[in-house]
Design a protein around this nucleic acid. Structure first.
Lengths: 337, 337
DNA sequence: ACGATGGCTGGGAGCGCTTCCAGCGACAGT
DNA sequence: ACTGTCGCTGGAAGCGCTCCCAGCCATCGT
């Protein structure tokens, strides 16, 4: 069994003394900087091992002005919303990217005024090296707070009406086109669109992709209803569309939740899927496999999003010249279309 | 509009100089320590405001030997498992408790060897003031790592075969008794139990509660099958029990997932719930409301768990004499029993 | 033989804060 | 007048690290 935790961690000075070298020399070895002789290196390494030395994070942070911590700010602390698997996926992605670095992840639930104040203070007191922001609405106060603090920031998804210097986003337009083209390829022509909130970038972009695909194919958009990315919203939108365009033969829903709602309503109206109406969704975050029938949808990797955001942020912190990233999406064929 | 972020944050020295006092005096004002005259206080506060001074977190941490950060270690980074709403709830609870402190939350996904190594290093390099551990199996290596590091630690739920110095746990035994007593009160006598893994404390405790209630009522346990806390496991256990005890009239499942599986199997076997068989679950984490019929279950507050763990940890870090906590559970009546 | 190079070294000055402590004047008690 | 208290003060020594820089010795070219 290893020794019990020492009361006090040894310091670099102690290591240096034991190794019979100066503190600077010891430091050089620890950081394996150049200009260290073989003998010095060996002596220091021996002392380190014997003492069980590990550099104090805080002291190093003070000297280097780098905390080794990146924050992930989540604009919602409503348990329901944070419980969305989306965030868990982002976190897993971020963690994966952090895995082979010395950086750690600080999680900030910052929706309430209180939470935001805490975050502001954290940034201004140089508590973190950079920050990751996801799922922001265009007018979220976080945008401003972060800009003011002058801390490197990477956005996941673009807020509407604001193009951050660095962001990672899924190819929403491309994905929506893919979905719509698939429906067109199936021979459908009376394709309607259930959109997300048009006041979000994703909502707007996915609808744009749908329209582009229609126009390119020489079709005119057959009908559109705005949902809110929830299943209930999707169901309501589907009802409206069914009233206005009873002849519709396909629907593109801007996410899977809404597609699930649409599926339910279509079933209720006696239409078969994909027989009478083909349906495709967007996201592929689990529910798509559990609908009846399973949903053909556009897959975007949220873990990938988190991972790329983190890599980008690390680059930015390191002062590298980096540019934003658009992540590809792909169509996943199941039974609904 | 407010000024742009200053290139460099002002330091305490600058504040002191501007206020015409010594750095110690300024520090005393900032930390509102005693022995500060009215004049000094005013002068410093004025300077602070004018300069927009905020103390540097890292420097303070080095001087006080307190990082102002607590870690939450999650033993699973499998996206599927971390996506469990359980963790989101814990995080929300923890965040709530942290809200009116100066502490921040560091999230560590520490299941892989790599993740564990990172955590070990974080603890040993004095990167955090304390750590919160949830959902540990008895033999999880984290237990050891944490003990060795000698960092204040609070457990959420007790690992089997190991009673941590500080933990917060739901009253699993009490909750299971409540559930079972309810079934008994309904006049059921042939009550079976679907357990979770008996190698977890929660699994064992909930089964114990069931048995105690049966014994107290003068009934003998009518049958037991071990599940694994998943819906599929619950379904399998239910099948087994139906084979062995076709006359059963009630089932206590150690969590809602398994209860949902049991419900499905019971429906498939032509039995009505709660008519032929009454079912009660445990957890009340969302699914319970969405089963058919909605599930009567034992409610435990996971947010409350996170909150209490955090409060306890803060106390322990502050050096207070604190003891572990058992959180009450309560029965939520829906339609399945 | 000479200076020029160049790897290695330790001293020391930070990083920005807290906190101990000696010292100060003012004021009360004798 | 002298001592003792007491509230307040600034100097200075940390906290544990990084990193610049002047200085040292060998080696090299001429």
């Amino acid at each position: 069994m290893a020794a019990v935790a020492p009361r006090r961690q040894p310091t670099l000075d102690e290591v240096a003394e034991r190794a019979g070298v100066s503190r600077s020399a010891a430091s050089r070895v620890i950081n394996n900087a150049p200009h260290v002789s073989r003998a010095t290196r060996d002596a220091v390494e021996k002392a380190v091992k014997e003492l069980g030395y590990l550099p104090n994070r805080t002291a190093r942070a003070l000297a280097t002005r780098q905390t080794g911590i990146v924050a992930l700010a989540v604009p919602d602390d409503d348990p329901q919303l944070f419980a969305d698997p989306f965030f868990a996926q982002v976190i897993v992605g971020v963690s994966a990217a952090l895995e082979d670095t010395d950086l750690h992840l600080l999680l900030c639930l910052a929706s309430s005024g209180r939470g935001r104040a805490r975050l502001t203070k954290l940034l201004q007191t140089r508590g973190v090296d950079g920050i990751l922001l996801v799922a922001l609405r265009g007018d979220d106060p976080l945008t401003d707070i972060v800009r003011r603090a002058g801390v490197p920031a990477v956005y996941g998804g673009r807020p509407l009406h604001f193009e951050p210097e660095w962001y990672v986003d899924s190819d929403n337009v491309g994905g929506a086109r893919l979905a719509t083209e698939h429906l067109i390829g199936l021979g459908r022509t009376r394709i309607v669109s259930i959109t997300g909130q048009m006041c979000t970038e994703a909502g707007a972009a996915r609808h744009r992709g749908y329209r582009e695909a229609m126009v390119i194919a020489g079709l005119s958009p057959h009908g559109t209803a705005e949902g809110d990315f929830t299943e209930a919203g999707g169901a309501a939108a589907m009802k409206t569309l069914l009233d206005e365009h009873p002849d519709l033969d396909a629907v593109f829903a801007a996410n899977d939740n809404m597609a699930a709602g649409a599926l339910r309503v279509l079933g209720g109206s006696g239409r078969s899927v994909p027989g009478d109406v083909a349906v495709v969704g967007f996201d592929d975050l689990g529910i798509a496999e559990r609908t009846e029938p399973p949903l053909t949808t556009v897959h975007q990797s949220i873990q990938g999003l988190g991972k790329e955001m983190t890599r980008l942020l690390i680059g930015v912190i390191a002062g590298q010249e980096r540019s934003s990233i658009i992540l590809p999406t792909r169509l996943v064929l199941r039974e609904s279309a």
